[in-house]
């Protein structure tokens, strides 16, 4: 099944502007141009409230002010149980991975990750043929 990249909408939630720019660049390299940005979990939820059912994927950092990535994931899962959610974080310990798994995360990738690793992860989640 071919995925139309023009209809792929990604919400990128990351408080660090440099990291946000980097991930946005990688998404663009993959051919995804519909990228919405939010700087924390609260702003991400506001976007979701205003634009329900438009997202194909959420790419989210863990440590953020106001609402953390895991807090956002729990809230998102109540309204969108199967929306792909990729956690991008520097937390590489088993406990953090377990916490995210228990909150029903779809994908988990540790920073700093290469474009290749990121592309594989996102492609699998969006079922894009590689």
């Amino acid at each position: 099944m071919d995925v139309d990249m023009n209809e792929t909408n990604v919400l990128l939630v990351e408080d660090d502007v440099n990291v946000r720019t980097a991930i946005k660049g990688m998404l663009r390299e993959m051919g995804i141009s519909n990228i919405q940005e939010a700087t924390d979990g609260v702003k991400a939820l506001e976007y979701l409230d205003d634009h329900p059912d438009v997202l194909s994927l959420i790419v989210c950092d863990w440590n953020m002010p106001n609402k953390t990535g895991i807090g956002l994931l729990k809230d998102v899962r109540q309204a969108y149980p199967i929306l792909p959610f990729l956690m991008v974080t520097a937390r590489a310990d088993k406990d953090s991975v377990l916490v995210a798994k228990n909150a029903d995360v779809t994908g988990y990738i540790c920073k700093p990750f290469s474009f290749e690793d990121f592309r594989k992860k996102v492609s699998t989640m969006l079922k894009i043929p590689m």
Binding site: D16, N18, V19, M26, K111, P112, S114, F115
Partner: peptide, 8 residues
């Protein structure tokens, strides 16, 4: 976290 832009 800061190395992400360089690596990515």
């Amino acid at each position: 976290n800061s190395m992400q832009p360089v690596v990515g």
